[in-house]
Design a protein around this nucleic acid. Structure first.
Lengths: 250, 250
DNA sequence: TTGACACATTGATGTAGATCAAGACCATGA
DNA sequence: TCATGGTCTTGATCTACATCAATGTGTCAA
């Protein structure tokens, strides 16, 4: 099987620095609009660990990830943290029509984002309806992903959570194309144990223990610190608790 | 304090049987479009406990809740269930551009929904862009709610989960208007213990125990089976673990 | 080469919430 | 009046994961 979302992949191959991926998606995009988008866009780089914006801070731009990984997190007063969004290349951040960020946005790895000042972007959305339609589609996808994530957080065991996360990243991470040979998947797991624990609603120790367990059972192989090999993707899928035909929502 | 979302309330007062709440929201709605909407809409009623659609089933309509409460749930192969959506009057269900339902949709109470066949609805969306814009706005709100919910599922204690759920319903349930006098809130908790446990990622026994605890401490008072009185809303908010100025996301 | 630091692993122990089990409460209907 | 079934409560016990603590590993810089 080793299914990979063709959609995500094709986007990131063709154009991943446009918030609505217009070159890949919108045949109807007119040259004028394209040019306007080009004019208002700019790039920002962050080092791994840096914060892009804090929850509550002013955020006068929308952006999409060009390279690297960004996370959205919520923090409680006493410091408990829960990741609520994971942005891979070509994913979109920022909410039109809101002044401040509702979440901490953090660079999980070195990160380049393609930004658009919010005002002109919103004006352009009004002028070109299909951009709004594309944004609606993307938001609905994110909502589905969030709901999948809720099932994980509310009902899965630690082991199932880890297996699920690895499968999710394997499916989404474009770099896996590099060696999707003979049923074996090799890719970077670009998150620290701590980031994984924030994603999964676990402690970092539990993440480490469950990773070790999967390793001992041969379901995953680790090479170096972050490189992961999945010898048999279907076997790992079995451990996620998901329906074996499990949709395509992420 | 006892803050109540003015937005939700005004919608449900003025027009809660329109999926995009156009009468309340869209000054720009033209008579023609209104008439068209009226023509393609129809009503469906369900008894408490009935299933509206199963996950994977064909769903050729979109709908909004008129009265009652509907839930969206996901089920794992072994029967573990997690609620991923709670629809109160005026909330929207169904995804334009998808053939089948991704979730079980269930009537938590007796329920009336206002439905629109999907095809004509989608066509109308294309003709009138601001309906799509409104839908985007609503979807973004839902995404925010889902992320709040993820924090609850991943990081809150059982006690905090219960307190949060009660506050969420108190804020959203329009019926609370009836007696929002002198800081005391009285309203129906329209969910069984089991439904609450599916919402919160707990067992029904834990829900029951924590409800009893809050009752013994005087944070809530129960009258009959489902009627709840919150003598001091702020005191209950303290127990949710949320920031005391905690945004307005639901 | 040696700290120093960030990150990961592993062990020992504690505990919140799950699980299993027994009743209580309350409506409905014979 | 008493059964019946659905919902809720409460108790006893178990366990998955958290917590606390020590140690290991790789990288960088002096």
């Amino acid at each position: 099987m080793t299914r990979v979302s063709p959609k995500t992949l094709s986007f990131s191959q063709e154009c991943n620095d446009c918030p609505i991926r217009h070159r890949a998606v919108c045949a109807r995009c007119e040259a004028d609009e394209l040019t306007q988008l080009e004019q208002i866009k700019y790039y920002r780089s962050f080092e791994a660990g840096q914060t892009v914006v804090w929850a509550g801070d002013k955020m006068d731009f929308v952006a999409s990830v060009v390279t690297g990984i960004a996370t959205l997190s919520q923090t409680m007063e006493d410091g408990r943290r829960q990741m609520v969004g994971l942005l891979l290349p070509s994913d979109f951040a920022g909410r039109p029509g809101r002044e401040t960020s509702a979440y901490d946005v953090t660079a999980a790895t070195d990160l380049v984002m393609c930004c658009f000042r919010k005002k002109p972007f919103e004006e352009m959305m009004l002028r070109t309806p299909h951009i709004g339609q594309r944004l609606l589609e993307m938001t609905l996808d994110e909502l589905d992903a969030a709901r999948e994530w809720m099932l994980l957080l509310g009902r899965k065991t630690a082991r199932e959570k880890i297996a699920s996360l690895i499968c999710i990243i394997a499916r989404r991470d474009a770099s896996l194309q590099l060696s999707a040979s003979d049923g074996e998947l090799r890719f970077d797991l670009p998150l620290t144990r701590e980031a994984m624990s924030e994603y999964l609603g676990l402690t970092l120790e539990t993440v480490s223990r469950q990773m070790s367990a999967l390793r001992k059972e041969g379901l995953i192989v680790t090479e170096g610190k972050r490189q992961i090999v999945i010898p048999d993707f279907d076997a790992l899928l079995e451990e996620t608790g998901d329906d074996s035909d499990g949709g395509f929502l992420i």
